[in-house]
């Protein structure tokens, strides 16, 4: 498939450009920051002039801008994102060390959102307007609520009042339930809307009609035939979901005191630990770009018409 290969090559070059641009923007941000980063690094202590000078030369802040930019890019190519101001360890290590709990939380939330959305869509697609309307209004309500509030409410009433779930820590399934629900809630509404739209389209397609004519039960038609097709548009939301999950994790991990990239990010922004912030941002930009290429690629596989079009 030379057309697909050409397409992939083009996309990858574009992606490389985008990531390079993102990294440059991040570097610019780091250096635009008003104030002396060395003082920020030294934190609440009262640093002696000797200590300030030592830290400045260790971090290379006494070198000219261009040199630092070149060094920044050079390090980036080797996967080195610099040193965190607050945590005093390499940003790469911070991210790899915190990736797992966030991935666990995000994946659980994603699966939960998709599952609930599928159930909602299958049971309400094409049904009486009254039912649909109530469900739709609920979906809109969940997308109108800030995640941190939902989290606080769940904590207040399910953890503090009736001790149904642990209030802190990420150990075990029990500790995952409330954060995952909080993170999933807003996404569920969007997924179920998209799924229902797809389902309603699919239920009018010939194959659905044929299946019904063959005597397949309505539930089977919906879950076995129509749902599969309806899931395709959800695919396009993957990139958006990644962004939502990451931004959501910042708040949810803070509320529930969970460890993970989100909490690192929240603390880093408050403390203006710019290397950590840019590190997380660059890494997520890379992930995001790759996911978008993957989604477009899958679409080309699924829908052959796209292959003919010029990318």
């Amino acid at each position: 498939m030379p057309a697909t290969l050409r397409w992939l090559g083009r996309r990858l070059i574009l992606a490389a450009f985008v990531v390079f641009g993102a990294a440059t923007a991040a570097f610019a941000a780091m250096n635009l920051m008003p104030g002396d980063p060395v003082l920020t690094i030294l934190g609440s202590t009262n640093p002696t002039p000797a200590l300030i000078a030592q830290v400045r030369s260790d971090l290379g802040y006494d070198e000219p801008f261009a040199v630092r930019y070149a060094e920044f890019l050079g390090r980036l190519v080797h996967g080195d994102l610099g040193q965190s101001y607050q945590l005093r360890e390499p940003v790469t290590e911070v991210i790899t060390g915190q990736l797992l709990p966030t991935a666990e939380l995000a994946l659980t939330a994603f699966v939960l959102a998709l599952a609930v959305a599928a159930v909602l869509a299958v049971t309400t697609a094409g049904r009486r307007p009254a039912v649909r309307r109530v469900v739709s209004a609920l979906e809109l309500l969940t997308t109108s609520s800030p995640g941190f509030w939902i989290g606080i409410l769940l904590l207040t009433f399910l953890s503090f009042r009736i001790h149904l779930f642990p209030a802190a820590g990420g150990d075990g399934v029990n500790g995952l339930v409330l954060p995952a629900i909080t993170l999933a809630l807003g996404m569920t509404g969007v997924f179920s809307q998209v799924l229902r739209a797809g389902l309603e389209r699919a239920l009018e397609e010939p194959y659905a009609l044929t299946a019904r004519a063959r005597g397949t039960g309505e539930t089977a038609v919906r879950t076995r035939h129509a749902l599969r097709h309806a899931l395709i548009p959800v695919l396009t939301l993957s990139g958006w979901a990644l962004g939502t999950l990451l931004s959501g994790a910042v708040v949810v991990e803070t509320v529930f005191g969970r460890r993970g990239i989100g909490r690192v990010m929240a603390t880093a922004v408050i403390g203006r630990d710019v290397p950590t912030v840019t590190g997380v941002v660059i890494v997520s930009a890379v992930f995001f770009t790759l996911i978008n290429i993957l989604v477009d690629g899958l679409y080309r596989v699924i829908d052959p018409r796209l292959r003919q079009e010029k990318a």
Partner: peptide, 23 residues
Amino acid sequence: RVTDVFLAFPGLLLALLVVAVLG
């Protein structure tokens, strides 16, 4: 193209980066 670059920051992350820089 510049827009593409900025679109590559998912979700709230660009906003968080800007706040981290500006305070």
